[in-house]
Design a protein around this nucleic acid. Structure first.
Lengths: 117, 117
DNA sequence: TTAGCATATCGATACTCGTCGATATCGTTT
DNA sequence: AAACGATATCGACGAGTATCGATATGCTAA
């Protein structure tokens, strides 16, 4: 197994992860799942470019109809990716008439960045 | 299509993404691909917990043999995830005898955090 | 009401990925 | 040399996902 120097600090499996005991595992299962889901939303180049376009919009918002062409994917595909960004809390949307406007949620990225230490 | 207010700032598809022209698309295809690959490495709860354990190690490094039990997955699975973290530049490894020691690369996370604005 | 457009959903397909048992590789020990 | 233990790789399987054509939903205009 491990060398003998710091045998005492050996991390141990802790199935009891409920209340406040599990301090030997830095990141809980739940936190890991939640964090991973946000990273998963950012793990696609199409979504990163969508987020980039939306974030850098002069008016702070972009019509969905103006996202299909620059991305170069089909309308259902772009709609699919926008939904994933929305469900991850990375963008918010507002329907105005026939159009849907998307805005970035920078606080979401800020909180993400802060959790990277 | 889009409303008429800011028709001039409408982002346009730019297939010529080589030298320095494409400035209407904030994030290039290449940058998006590269960023997405790092996020993909962080998009799994097992890898996040591995990274967390390694990062918070008192000695700054953890033996791979001490990672299998707390993660609760098989040894090939843990080895697989460690490889992905390594190839993403998030951890570095050093073989000492029979054991392999893993260290975190915090600068990698720092540069990631800085790219989230 | 009907026609037309913007957006979302559905169904299908191809591909990627997480997982594990079995096995290979490699250093250590006897 | 032979046996053993730690780690990586392989092969396979099941689950998830990116993509798109077709279709549904919903708003607007005639």
């Amino acid at each position: 197994m491990a060398p003998k120097t710091v045998k005492a600090t050996k991390s141990k499996s802790e199935t009891k992860v409920c209340c406040g005991t599990a301090r030997d595992i830095p990141l809980s299962q739940r936190d890991a799942d939640e964090l991973a889901s946000v990273f998963a939303a950012l793990s696609d180049p199409v979504r990163l470019r969508l987020l980039s376009i939306i974030s850098s919009a002069p008016d702070g918002e972009v019509c969905a109809c103006d996202l299909v062409t620059p991305i170069g994917k089909s309308q259902p595909t772009v709609s699919h990716h926008l939904k994933i960004l929305f469900e991850a809390g990375l963008v918010e949307r507002e329907k105005r008439g026939v159009w849907v406007w998307y805005r970035a949620v920078p606080e979401r990225l800020d909180s993400l960045a802060s959790r990277l230490h």
